[in-house]
């Protein structure tokens, strides 16, 4: 065991954290509102969108993320090339930072998960509260924002936490598109002297620390949001 390598590579792996985090954050920023809206279409039985959400969820959840990555990573460049040619844009698709593909794949993927999470969370808030909100003069948007969403969030938060942790871990698959994230950086460092065990330990530790931290933050936020529940009579 090469301890100096172990320590050095730990920091190499750590330098991939911002990449993992930015992919996680962008994906969540897209998937949270979109997933919520699509979940609403299923609850409110809006015909076409509801069906779309259903098919979308079963497609995404029924296929491995790594396959989704291969599909996006191989098809989007082809698609872009034809667009660039058509509009005479002088740009090479292979100069595009793979992080953009990661945004696409993980947003698509996380949205499907959020639809499922919100769908079950919304069904725990009674329709009666929505009607009560209307009856005291709140608009649809006001009722959602002030009454429904706060309660849905509390119910959904533990699942959103799990999904976020899974997402962080799943960004490690980004190495398949040569994304400069935690796993790839450490592996590249290991290639030089074949110190794979040390590198994997580092990768392991970095994800462990990162995910524990995220879980801790979620727990604290959950506590704050759910103060109305704790005092159960």
């Amino acid at each position: 065991m090469d301890f100096k390598f172990l320590v050095d590579t730990f920091f190499v792996a750590l330098s991939g954290v911002p990449t993992a985090l930015i992919i996680t954050i962008i994906s969540l920023l897209i998937a949270l509102p979109l997933g919520f809206l699509l979940a609403l279409t299923r609850i409110n039985q809006i015909p076409v969108l509801q069906r779309f959400a259903q098919v979308y969820v079963s497609f995404i959840r029924g296929t491995p993320v790594i396959v989704q990555i291969f599909i996006v990573y191989s098809s989007v460049p082809l698609f872009l090339t034809s667009i660039f040619e058509k509009y005479h844009i002088d740009k090479n698709v292979y100069d595009i930072n793979p992080i953009w593909y990661a945004f696409i794949v993980f947003s698509i993927n996380t949205t499907a998960i959020m639809i499922e999470i919100f769908r079950s969370a919304i069904s725990t808030v009674s329709k009666g509260q929505l009607e009560a909100a209307y009856s005291v003069g709140l608009t649809n948007v006001q009722a959602l924002r002030r009454i429904i969403i706060p309660q849905v969030l509390v119910t959904a938060l533990p699942n959103i936490c799990t999904a976020t942790v899974n997402l962080i871990k799943a960004t490690s698959l980004g190495y398949a598109m040569s994304l400069q994230e935690i796993t790839l950086r450490a592996k590249v460092a290991a290639n030089v002297g074949y110190n794979y065990v040390e590198a994997y330990i580092d990768i392991f530790l970095v994800y462990l620390i990162l995910c524990s931290l995220v879980e801790y933050l979620f727990k604290r936020y959950e506590k704050r949001l759910s103060k109305y529940k704790i005092a159960h009579a």
Binding site: A133, G137, P150, Q151
Partner: peptide, 20 residues
């Protein structure tokens, strides 16, 4: 059909403040 995330007083004032 009380708003479960609001106190008794907030339940009563919600319609006044937001609705009216």
């Amino acid at each position: 059909n009380l708003f479960n995330n609001k106190t008794a007083l907030e339940n009563v004032t919600e319609g006044l403040i937001i609705g009216r």
